[in-house]
Design a protein around this nucleic acid. Structure first.
Lengths: 192, 192, 192, 192
DNA sequence: CGGTAAGCGAGACGGTACGTCGCGTCTTAAG
DNA sequence: CTTAAGACGCGACGTACCGTCTCGCTTACCG
């Protein structure tokens, strides 16, 4: 019986070329920004043919999204024994990612793509935000167990508010104080 | 100094052409989005030559900013005698603007531009957010006078949080409930 | 059937693959022309890998030349006892080859290659034209023996003129009359 | 009356750019040949944008045809008082054009395009061959008037035969004698 | 009130980047 | 070993916009 197995034939895709194009993408993203970088430039920097990029990704958005995905940090669940210390750790963690030049560009790109393309927004929610929301829920559960906050506090809503404030502060820089301090102050409003 | 004042000579700029290009810009912004629309297309739609556009604006951002400016509503300061009714009115007002197809695109464009271009972000803060922040402060002052909220509540911070949540909910649509209800629920966290 | 369809080890498909690629080449030559056909398309149509083609031929010209070679007819020497009947037979014979869709493309390719590449032109002269020139010389000798034409007529020159007119009429289609009739009429000029 | 006159609006096409691209085309045609030259290279050499070329011509063939057209010599009608002197002059004239390096490339390109594209062949017949055919007819008429040739000789057919021989000799170089001598000898066959 | 200078629609310009296609080479797994 | 499959680096293709530059025509002001 011929099991018409749809297994991969031919030369497999080069992981080396793939890595090179992701690396080049990140470099150029940080250097010139999303709009300022061309696929040609990525291909040249990576030492790769343009079709090799288009074979994997059908748009710059996809490519950049995957490049970001490839360097994303694991989710951390701080557990200091105190809610606000946990939150400070989360804020510090977010600050490390978002306050670097690359981080700012990355966030801008994500917001840009998400606001123009709701499909991208959903993907980002599912792949990036959801795991962090669950990690944050754990933090709040522990705080509830320690009676630091009210038991009926909606962890998802608080997480969304925190994320919202983080992005807002990143984009509009509303006060001269530090991003971390500002985010912390805004969270004070929401949590007891 | 030369008293020969450099007043306008020759044919003055056509207000008709100006109106047409702003209108066309808004239509195409709603139809194709910021990145998806071309200056050529705006010129054709408006029945206007490209140089006529570039004589007035030196970039797509400027043109679009002015087009948005031209249809912006006046700031309203609700005064129902009750804080949450005032807030509901503000939310409704924001919803009317942001939940239309044009509104969504507009917001997307603003966020996009602001996140890529901090100068644009500052202009937007100054010209759009600041007046609304002051109006909101009035609303909160009245509520404080009615003892509905604590006297030490920072109105600017609350406004920022509200704005942040509005944008976040608009971009990521985190829950199936209505945008207005979601924003209201998040605000409940912050205000007493 | 005693064994599997896919027989053997070592090099079982060599001639089969070769035949397939020649056949595919001829089909695509007739369908899309020399410039319009790609090596990729030939490989796919023949069910053959591209390297299998490049192992045999180092250029499209070579491959096509061999494909044409593989279907070439033998030289015929008509002998009706009358010069113009002999010539008519030669013209008919040429018409069969050149007036088919494949034939036209083939001739176009040969002329193309010959006019760009004098080496190819010499090869074509030697391998294709020379035998026919000699056959034609035999026909004219017989006619001279029958006193149908002058004894000092240069057979090579007449053959060249005939070939030239055939190609010219094929390319430029100068008159609405049939190709055969036109060629015959032109030959009447040259031969008595 | 509403004479919807289709007059030229907007900036007129630059004759300077046009000249530059034709010149660059001829240079690159002689340097690299038809297949070996790219539109990009023409654009760069001419100091012209690619779209400026494509605005005028929709294919390389068209561009090259026009470039050749632009340097083509006027039709000459020799009138020495003797048929064979007239013919020799025509042959010399043709030799000057076709035996130069550029001339050979040009002829190759024309034959190539004509044999692959019957539309191009028709255009070439009409724009190039037809005027020369008529000029040749005048030469033969004069010879008839001088009783040098038979009155019923078809001038078009003789012209076609001459053209055919010229092309054939150019492509296949059938004899070691000079091109001019060979063409002359072949014509001797046809004209009494 | 007539000249004139700026503005106008139209559209061509030199460029840049796009996404696709075909080339000829290479790298697999299967036989 | 060779084969079929197919990815690879390369580079040309033809298109879409960019922002600028002529054109020939209004049109409103200023002398």
């Amino acid at each position: 019986m011929t099991d018409t197995n749809k297994k991969s034939q031919g030369r497999p895709r080069s992981t080396q070329a793939h890595q090179a194009m992701l690396q080049a993408t990140l470099e150029l993203l940080a250097e010139f920004g999303f709009d300022g970088m061309s696929i040609d430039a990525i291909a040249v920097r990576a030492g790769v043919g343009k079709p090799t990029i288009y074979r994997r990704y059908s748009s710059k958005e996809e490519l950049v999204a995957d490049a970001i995905e490839s360097v994303r940090q694991d989710v951390v669940i701080p557990n200091t024994g105190n809610l606000w210390d946990d939150i400070d750790e989360l804020i510090q963690n977010a600050a490390q990612i978002t306050l670097s030049p690359l981080g700012r560009k990355t966030v801008a790109m994500i917001i840009n793509s998400a606001s123009n393309n709701s499909q991208f927004a959903q993907i980002y929610c599912t792949k990036y935000l959801q795991p962090r929301k669950q990690a944050f829920a754990v933090v709040l559960e522990r705080a509830k167990a320690r009676n630091e906050i009210q038991a009926d506090l909606d962890p998802g809503l608080v997480f969304d508010t925190m994320s919202a404030i983080m992005l807002y502060a990143l984009i509009f820089q509303p006060t001269p104080e530090s991003w971390e301090a500002y985010v912390r102050r805004a969270l004070r409003l929401c949590i007891s």
